[in-house]
Amino acid sequence: MNEKAEELNRVEKKDLFASGHRACGGCGQALAARLVHDAAGENTIACVATGCLEVFSSPYPDPSWRIPFLHSLFENPSAVASGVEAAYKALKKGPVNIIAQAGDGSTADIGFQSISGMFERGHNVLYVCYDNEAYMNTGVQRSSFTPYGAWTSTTPMGNTTRKKNLPLIAADHGIPYVATATVDDFKDLQRKVKTALSIEGPKYIHILVPCPLGWGHPGDLTVKICRLAKDTGLFPIFEIIDGKVTNVRKIPVKVPVEEYLKPQGRFRHLFKKGVPTEEVAEIQKIANHNIERFNL
């Protein structure tokens, strides 16, 4: 392996996002935030949206951040990051990694316009979406990333809509780099962060981050659930470089969606006395569609 590849594949542990924060045990988002910033390194500015990550990591006077941290509102991290980047340009400072980051609710819903603007204007900013498939910070309400069938506190009978596909929408803005990742594969996630940060322009990384509280699974299953999300085809892993889908993760042995759904309380109502309902078949269709579409 050459030096560059070695560096890309090295797992970094710098504790720039320090432990001792207030996330629930097994929080996928806390793990992801640590991995992202350790990969990015000290020369990084984190522009964070309101949401679980912000709340568990930034109470005055003891935040968990060892790098500059900037939080303003729920729906504007991409706009704030655009401003930071513009200031660095204008003041002829840098280079610096600027990472705008938010949950799925901020990203897919209320901050959607702002992200689109950041992509379109071409700011040199990495946007990271921590997708736990609902508004967790306010008590597990539905977002437009909530999957079909899932219970949330505002879809008490199960969600009837399908997940918005932001990685593809991001790529269609013509941005140079898009990737998906999960928190079970540290090396892959950190390689993607490093790759993204080596590219000039707007970048988007979408990370699936299981939430034990909102998904209703034990904290020690977080990593396993990520693997199941990938192996069922429900969460495809790929990169889109200059508009071309590439480095698609092939599923070694395909797993039926039931195995992903069953350990999670939010899907419990989809099984009547252990027997899957029609919705499960519907979810299997979504997985099959992904498998076909991305050739997983």
Partner: peptide
């Protein structure tokens, strides 16, 4: 916000 002097701006109270 500058990596030379890491600090948090916009912490919650």
């Amino acid at each position: 916000v500058d990596p030379r002097w890491p600090r948090g701006i916009g912490l919650y109270a």
